[in-house]
Simulated scan of single mutants.
Amino acid sequence: GRWHHAAVVYDQAESRLHLVLDGMRVNSAQAEALPPGSGGLPLALGGRRPDPMKEASPQQSFTGRLDELRIWSEARSVASLGHRRARPTSNSETEDRDGPLRLHFDENRTTDRLEWVEGARRVPTRLMFQSPLRGLQAQIDGQSVTLRWTAASPNEGPFLIERSSDGSSFTVVERLSPVASGTKAEQAQEITYTDENVPGKVVFYRVRQIAPNTEPERATGTIKIGLGAKESSSRPVELVGNFPNPFKTSSTIAYRVHESQPVTLTVWDVSGKRIATLADGAHEPGYYERTLDAGDLPSGTYFARLKTPQGIQSHQMVLLK
């Protein structure tokens, strides 16, 4: 339910595609190298082009909304993407020609930047843009969660309510039948569902509607919910985590001590090298915070390690510069 700035950068030297989300590099993948002078290549927005080698290639379409597209003639660094992502580009025609190619999706736009690119043209497409499920909200009552959303066509297919503990792997917890036929096909309607006895302190939900085979998937965005469960820990010492995570310059590592005892807090890299010792000594019961200064550390994955007489706890941290 929120707007995001997404960028894809092609690293020609390594033949890799990097995904930058809201100014932070979050993923990368090996890509097939483009041959020099390969000429014009098609670009599909809002969906994946069918595979010409497969007779019945499934159509995977984007169910959100696009506001603006910027195409640069050279690869942008992560730093420049983060710096410019919230800045509107200039309306000056001179500066626009030196900057990115911009495409808007507003019907009242009178200019078409495609005329500035030699050989670029618009072609018909069967890609569909729609948001038939919207406004996913949640209300919490103890360990129960009530979801509400609006369906543009509530009687065109069943709804799948999916739940996740990490926001990436979802499990279907309920399948709701289509709304009774008394509702007109074009009439939107609010739908509710209550999930009882939800496990854990934090859960993620999303709703999908099984649409006719000729249409793309219908889905809401993902909503994150904190249940505020009562604190209960059998551990005398608890490593809470770090914030922010990922971080750029520094991050605060938090831990809670329930019984007096010696505690050692260290930070390690993926090679097993100790980077810093942030705490080492006797601790009285209480809540503690220690700050890790990134300094000259390179971007990558690090681990906070909390050692006590009862054992060792660890927590993964990501440094993105």
Rank of each mutant, 00 (worst) to 15 (best):
V8P: 11
V8R: 07
Q12L: 11
A13P: 08
L19G: 12
V20D: 02
L21T: 12
G23T: 05
M24Q: 14
M24I: 15
Q30R: 08
A33P: 13
A33G: 14
G40N: 07
Q59D: 15
G64S: 03
L66R: 02
I71T: 00
A79G: 13
G82F: 06
R87H: 12
N91R: 06
S92C: 10
L101I: 01
H104R: 10
D106M: 12
T111Q: 13
L114H: 06
W116T: 15
E118T: 08
G119I: 03
A120H: 01
A120M: 06
R121G: 12
Q137Y: 11
Q139E: 14
T146P: 10
A151S: 14
N155T: 15
L160T: 14
R163N: 08
V173I: 10
V173P: 00
R175Y: 05
T183N: 12
A185E: 13
Q189I: 05
Q189W: 02
D195I: 08
E215K: 12
L227H: 05
G228Y: 01
K230C: 15
P236T: 03
E238L: 12
G241F: 02
N242Y: 02
N245L: 06
S250P: 14
Y255G: 06
Y255R: 04
Y255F: 15
R256T: 04
R256S: 09
R256Q: 11
Q261E: 10
Q261H: 09
V263N: 00
T264E: 13
S271E: 02
E284A: 09
G286A: 03
R290E: 15
L292P: 00
S299W: 04
T301K: 01
F303E: 06
I312Y: 03
I312F: 07
I312V: 15
H315V: 10
H315M: 03
V318N: 08
